[in-house]
Structures are given as C-alpha cells and as structure tokens.
Design a protein around this nucleic acid. Structure first.
Lengths: 201, 201
DNA sequence: GAAAACCGATGACGTTTGTCATGTGACCCG
DNA sequence: CGGGTCACATGACAAACGTCATCGGTTTTC
C-alpha cells in the first residue's frame, strides 16, 4: 500500500483529489495539508511514501517544500502538481529532486499512475510541458536582473525598487533596460509579463 | 437523482471533482466539459439539473457561459467555482442569475450540499466571500475607465491603448489618471493591480 | 429645465522612464 | 596574467507618463 501526503491550499480541490485517489486499491491518502509548514510537519511525523504538493502554497513555494522534505525525510518521494505549467518551474523542480511534475490540465487517470511510478523511484514529467521547457530554454537574465525585475513586478517605481534592492536608481534603470532588451520587450512591464509567463521570476 | 454537468478546463481537477461527487448517492455527473462552448452544447443536449462551472475557461468567462445556459436551458440551474475569490466576480455572477458561488478554498464537504441547495432552487454564497464583497463595495470606475485600464493591464504604452480603444492619447492618459486617483494608486500599474485584486477589470 | 455625470479632446507642465556612453572594481577561467 | 563577464555607479538626453485646466457634447437624474 502506497501512503500519500496531499498538499494543496484549496480545500475543495484537495478533497476532490483525495476522493480520486481513494478509488485506487493500492493507494491511501494518509494525510492532507494546506500550507508548506503543515506539509513539512506531517511528512516528518508520518513518513509517507509520496508527497503530492501543489506549486502554489500560501506560505512556501511548492519546490521549497519538496526540498525541505528531501532533506528531512529522505524516504519520501515528491511530486508537484500545478495550475500554471511554466517551464521555469519545471526546471527548478527537477533540479531540486522532485520526481513527478504534472499540470492540472493533465488527464485525471494519470495521477494514480504517476504516484505509482514516483513511489517506485521512477520519474514522470508531463510530455507537453517537457517539450515546452526544452524549447523555452533557460533564463537569459543575470541574478540582479531577475531580482530587480521581480521587484518591478509589483508596479513599484524605480526609486522604490532602488530602496528595496539597496541600489542606486540609475543602476536599477540599467538593469531593467538590460532585462527588457534580453526579453524582447519595449518596457519593464512587458518584460515582467514575459518573464512571468516563462517562469523566470 | 440530481444530474450534474461539470465544466472545468483543468482535466485533473474536473476528474477529481467528479470522483468527489460520485460519492453521493443522490448525485450523478452526467457530463463533463473543458470549454465554454462545450459546456453550452452539452447543457442544451442533456438538460442537466445543475451546471457547475469554473470561472476561468479558455474560451468564455464562466459567468458568460452561465448566462447563455439560463437563456437556452432555463431548467438548468448554475453555480460557479473559482480559484480566485474576487468580489467583483461574485457580483457579476449573482447579477446574471447564478445561484451558487464557491471558492475552491471552501471545504470539500460543502460541494454536494450546495449542489442540492441549488438544484432545489435555493441560493448559496460562500460566507467569507460574501462579507468581502459587501465591504469592498462596487467599482468606482466608469465604463471607459475600466476599459482603458483593462487595456493597460497588458503593459501596453499609451499610444497602443489609444489605438485599440480608438481614442486620442491624451484622453487615454486622462482616464488612466482618473482611474489611478479613484483607486488610490500612484501610477497606472498599481491601479491595474488594485483593480484586478478586487475583480473590477 | 437645470444639475450632475460621463465621453472625448487639447495644450502645457514637471516628473519618471528608457537608453547610451563610460567608468571602476571583483571574480573566474584559460 | 590577461580577457571576459558581472555588479554597481554616474551623467545626459529624448521619450513617455502623470497631472491639471479647460473646452464642448451627450445622457441621466432630480
């Protein structure tokens, strides 16, 4: 029997997925969590075989939770499910040892299959997403460009960004300009949207 | 037996919700749809008792689908489920005759209950969301302010917005300025974010 | 029928951006 | 050790933006 930990902040969805998994004879949902901290605590306490983690959790990023689980509960394999299938997220997830990556647009039937594959130590990535991730390539932005662009994502003015990043306003504008050029955008806001759509910030 | 039509573009979620509803003896999921057009076609063909519609569908807005169903299949009651519980959406939905409104953060147990209430002709709105909708109030933006702000949401420049809205650039700036003031924002981008967070655009 | 909104436009103003040239210092790699 | 990349900064200029005053026309409302 494969023991599953289910983490998703949307209660309705979490319950629905539990119902879906309950249909399988060889799987059992032994715990559910709504936040990253809760997920981690339950993984430690119950040592499940597989943790299914939503990428968007209120406190922590799903990938960060997975990383923490790998560190604290090495026997527990992890897989990510997400609404927004962004190449950047997939890249980050795989780099941190996540074994399964499934967009919520995937067929309902595959969920149990992927859980079994992951439980056995295998890997599964949604084929379409994998293709996108390969064709999208890696982020062309430097560390600082990413950071500044991330701060710009909230719509803050240059001065505000400069304060938060402890940089001079002129430097901030340079970084934003460089990022926009690399992303083929005509201004910072377009650049923010592009970077977000590829999961680079 | 209450016959349910389930519409959600995320296959995994749709399947999971179907599994959840299948646990109830008095409910049956008679059809599933992934797009607005599909939903409408199935509602016409099968005349279900209740349609559960996700707010975000690839082609049409969930509320628009509900409206079309009310027109074409008056016997079918509708309810909306959504990831983002925005007051503006709730307002729009209720105005167009939707009888149930549930954020996906609601408890899984209530789903079947709400379906039964709606099937009987009753209404159900998530209490927390209702409170937010009341306290948030209605949009202070005029038609044109909303429209221009919506175009600005994509990060387009004033000239681009002016072209798309068939307005002069100066007029666009006036509307954006007025909208920003009404929303207490210091620039258009902050205004866009504020308006989006309240479901006003 | 007047007042109050809203729509659309223009011109002017100061501020904020985007862009470019240029410089310094740190670090890594061949 | 030298070249390349990155981080950070400054100064300068043109373009875009935010704001305000003001105008005329329509619709809604009291």
């Amino acid at each position: 029997m494969i023991r599953v930990l289910l983490a998703d902040d949307e209660h309705l969805i979490r319950g629905a997925m539990a119902a879906l998994l309950a249909l399988e004879d060889d799987l059992t949902v032994s715990a559910q969590a709504a936040t990253g901290a809760e997920t981690l605590a339950m993984a430690r306490a119950l040592q499940p075989d597989v943790a299914i983690i939503d990428l968007q959790l209120p406190d922590l990023d799903g990938v960060a939770v997975a990383e923490a689980i790998h560190r604290d509960v090495p026997s527990c394999r992890t897989m990510i499910v997400t609404s927004h299938g962004l190449p950047g997220h997939l890249r980050r997830a795989l780099a941190s040892g996540v074994r399964g990556f499934l967009p919520k647009t995937a067929a309902a039937e595959v969920l149990a299959t992927v859980v079994r594959i992951v439980a056995k130590g295998g890997r599964y990535v949604d084929p379409q997403l994998a293709a996108e991730a390969i064709s999208a390539g890696d982020s062309p932005l430097t560390t600082r460009e990413s950071q500044v662009l991330e701060l710009a994502a909230s719509g803050a003015a240059v001065e505000e960004i400069a304060r938060q990043a402890a940089l001079s306003p002129g430097t901030v504008r340079n970084y934003l300009s460089a990022a926009a050029i690399k992303l083929g955008a005509t201004n910072r806001h377009e650049a923010v949207r592009t970077a977000q759509s590829r999961g680079w910030i």
